[in-house]
């Protein structure tokens, strides 16, 4: 690991104030510490967010579940409110990494990192969540659909801090993760959510960034059945291909997992 300066502010405002130059925010550290350890990532200043109470916590307001950016995956997975309102989200959080990762990893850290095979991005797109972020004095709300811009890239500005995420409560939803056998990240992960007559289907792991499978959404809008999802032949164009699965295989698995997600959503 390269040397850096360490700061641990106790308020979000102080954290944002500390984030100058090439400073990085340290959330749960489950990706960032690894990258720094392997000397793949270097920063002059590391701003530890773990002491900031206002970034933690889960609440339900109207038809939204609001989760603080520094809320750990295991807290989401075990939350009675989340299990009640959006069981698919608790289920997704309970399947990220392993139990040790879940005890440290955070929602904000995961989506800011924008790993193409991470689970949370599928929930952001699948539920059409809204991300609250602040930089300087400005706070803004970013739509889930516009948040992820590419491989490990988001619309966040330098020094911009995610404070919380609002997840709309769907009629029903489910996430199915098909794990890459070594890393246990999603080789293909599909989040399906139904809001009235609207169906959202988000796919992680399969491309350079999470995306909505619009052709499956169209099919499911007509008929919300496992068969309708599985019958859609997804194009392999733009799909990732590696030793764990060719583009063609990933494309095929998107349909299969979408079908299974619908089956699970229907209970």
């Amino acid at each position: 690991m390269y040397a850096f300066e360490y700061q641990n502010p106790s308020t979000a405002a102080a954290a944002i104030g500390s984030a100058k130059g090439d400073a990085r925010f340290l959330a749960g550290g489950q990706s960032l510490v690894q990258a720094m350890k392997l000397r793949l990532s270097q920063t002059g200043t590391l701003v530890d967010l773990s002491g900031i109470a206002e970034l933690k916590g889960i609440s339900v307001a109207g038809s939204n579940v609001i989760i603080g950016a520094m809320t750990r995956h295991s807290e989401v997975a075990r939350s009675a409110e989340v299990k009640q309102a959006i069981p698919a989200l608790a289920d997704l959080a309970g399947g990220i990494g392993d139990q040790m990762v879940r005890n440290q990893g955070t929602l904000g850290g995961s989506i800011a990192n924008a790993d193409p095979a991470a689970c949370y991005p599928a929930a952001i797109l699948g539920l059409g969540a809204t991300i609250k972020a602040s930089v300087g004095q400005k706070e803004r709300a970013i739509t889930g659909d516009s948040f992820f811009t590419g491989l490990f890239e988001t619309t966040l500005a330098p020094g911009e801090l995610i404070t919380s995420v609002e997840f709309p409560v769907p009629d029903c939803a489910a996430y199915v993760k098909f794990k890459q056998p070594a890393s246990r990240f999603a080789l293909v992960g599909v989040f399906v959510a139904k809001f009235g007559s609207t169906v959202r289907v988000a796919v992680t792991g399969a491309k350079s960034s999470v995306f909505r499978a619009t052709d499956i959404e169209a099919a499911l809008s007509k008929s919300f059945t496992p068969e309708a999802a599985a019958a859609v032949k997804v194009s392999a164009n733009g799909m990732n291909g590696d030793m764990h699965g060719s583009a063609e295989y990933r494309a095929a698995m998107v349909s299969v997992m979408a079908g299974r997600a619908v089956a699970r959503a229907l209970g």
Binding site: P181, A182, S183, R184, M243, H244
Partner: peptide
């Protein structure tokens, strides 16, 4: 080496 870590070299785990 393309399988240079446990990210890509699939070790048997308990659930395999």
């Amino acid at each position: 080496l393309l399988t240079g870590s446990y990210m890509d070299y699939a070790m048997p785990r308990a659930d395999d």
